[in-house]
Write a protein that binds this DNA or RNA. Structure first.
Lengths: 136, 136
DNA sequence: CATTACCCTATCGGAATAGTAGATTACTGT
DNA sequence: ACAGTAATCTACTATTCCGATAGGGTAATG
């Protein structure tokens, strides 16, 4: 299941993508509009800033704003930042690969086989969706 | 991420599907072969029995055995029993639907849109795979 | 009587979520 | 130039919950 962090993060990005201009939006405004705890949202937006999606401006008239075109924001990338691996098992993940302790023969593992198929499909969907595709 | 419960459950089912005959296999044998903690596996097999996948026999010569043809065991069904909802969000789930607290307009929610697409695909894959497909 | 499934309970650790307090930065009106 | 205010930034803490595992005892079966 998706964590609230990821859910809120995507909602916040969508909200910012729907703004007509590039004027910074205060956390509180986003939080209110999307019904998110301000403090929790704060940490999420910070992470998204560190990851290069958002810019921030302090002080009066400050807030967060997108620094990339929504068309260039790939949801697989967002997902990996917020939620982590797309694969349901570490042994199936490209970016976060880890061998299973219990598994002797990965190539012949039934779970591995099934989860690889799931992963490939999910990845394809996430990569084919940009923020612009889902925001509106 | 998939819980170990689900992973172990699928591995155990696969192991039983690979047995040539219907002779009961003791928990300890499955646990040893698949490198799973006996006690943990015990609770998983019990659940799979309650759910109608396995039969059990006590005493000497006892153990667990499949009571359905692997071809008739749908992995979506197994997944729902072991892991729960296939959807990544309750508001996207058919069998475990729940409205989001924060979401005002589900139909226009960007996260909902994206996760519905992921869910539909994952479900299709799981439904198209039987235990027989992945066990060997 | 040995073997095996069944059942109940407790524990341990870590992740998710949220809250609190204060520091820092920047704009604005006088 | 200064004071006040609005906003982000940082760090710490608390709590709740769940996954995973272990232990010990009971019941059935050959």
């Amino acid at each position: 299941m998706l964590s609230k962090k990821t859910k809120y993060g995507i909602k916040a990005l969508s909200f910012l993508a729907r703004q007509e201009n590039q004027i910074p939006v205060p956390i509180a405004d986003i939080a209110k509009s999307e019904n998110i705890s301000i403090k929790f949202l704060e940490s999420i937006l910070l992470l998204l800033r560190y990851s290069g999606f958002l810019g921030a401006k302090k002080g009066k008239g400050g807030g967060y704003y997108l620094i990339k075109d929504p068309k260039d924001i790939n949801m697989a990338h967002v997902y990996r930042i917020l939620e982590g691996p797309i694969a349901l098992l570490p042994c199936v993940s490209h970016n976060f690969y880890e061998k299973c302790d219990d598994c002797v023969d990965e190539a012949n593992c039934s779970v591995h086989k099934l989860m690889t198929e799931v992963r490939d499909n999910t990845l394809m969907i996430l990569e084919n969706n940009t923020l612009a595709d889902i925001a509106f």
